[in-house]
């Protein structure tokens, strides 16, 4: 249960190897020990994340999750819930994709849409169903500023994030009064595995900063957070920039 002061008893990381997800768990662990379920593909990285979390004081449970497998979400949530209530679930898996390759490969577009949109939407549906029955819980969904106004340089990725943003915002509204809520997180450029080797974009931030914003957002019951906070203003400006100009912006 999330207690009166917002302390969390159990955390489910869907895409548990994500840098942002792991940072979120460590941020919570800095306050108190808790149960952390790491749902991810079976990789050495998963074992490493689990070991680090255990070393930081978590009671860790590892669960298989593969966004490419349609049966995975339901099984994953059931396994995670077998160990007790899920207080907070962070939906953090995703891929950036290579825009150049995507432009030439329709199958790759379909695959990216599955991993970045279809699977998170399915996971959100299963989680919502479970938490509704549980009578409490918070779903944290990693959207992105890239979904706010997709750019030529990564619009396939951006469009999947736009979809996920709409899905989870709507899901949150549909859950009003059930004890369950949704926090949509819109980070800008985050220096993580996903962006390794890329040049920093303006206002680049870290997984730790995103984790901080998630923990604060869950604690205060917010529905949306931007990271860094200034992104909200920047994006609301960008939304109104004329198209011809927007195309030429170095972002």
């Amino acid at each position: 249960m999330i207690d009166a002061l917002g302390s969390v008893g159990s955390l489910l990381l869907v895409g548990g190897t994500s840098d942002i997800a792991a940072a979120t768990a460590h941020r919570y662990l800095a306050e108190r020990p808790l149960r952390v379920v790491v749902a991810a593909r079976d990789t050495p990285r998963r074992a490493a994340v689990a070991a680090e979390l255990a070393a930081a004081g978590a009671t860790v449970q590892v669960v298989d999750f593969d966004a490419d497998d349609p049966a995975s979400p339901a099984r994953m949530v059931a396994e995670a819930a077998a160990g007790g209530d899920v207080d907070v679930a962070v939906v953090a898996f995703g891929q950036l994709g290579d825009q150049q390759q995507l432009a030439a490969d329709p199958d790759a577009v379909a695959a990216l849409a599955r991993v970045n949109y279809v699977a998170p939407a399915v996971v959100g549906t299963v989680l919502a169903q479970h938490m509704r029955a549980q009578g409490h819980g918070v779903i944290v969904a990693l959207s992105s500023v890239a979904g706010e106004r997709p750019r030529a340089s990564n619009f396939v990725y951006g469009s999947t994030k736009a979809g996920i943003d709409a899905f989870y915002s709507g899901l949150g509204d549909s859950l009003a009064g059930t004890g369950v809520s949704v926090l949509v997180v819109r980070p800008g450029f985050v220096r993580s595995k996903m962006t390794e080797g890329l040049d920093d974009a303006p206002l680049a931030t870290t997984p730790q900063a995103v984790a901080e914003a998630i923990v604060a957002g869950v604690r205060s019951g917010r529905h949306t957070v931007w990271v860094p906070g200034a992104m909200r203003v920047v994006m609301s400006g960008l939304r109104h920039v004329p198209r011809a100009l927007f195309r030429r912006l170095p972002i």
Binding site: M1, A4, A133, Q134, G135, H136, G179
Partner: peptide, 8 residues
Amino acid sequence: GDAAQNAG
């Protein structure tokens, strides 16, 4: 606190 509550 939550002594007299039972979520769901």
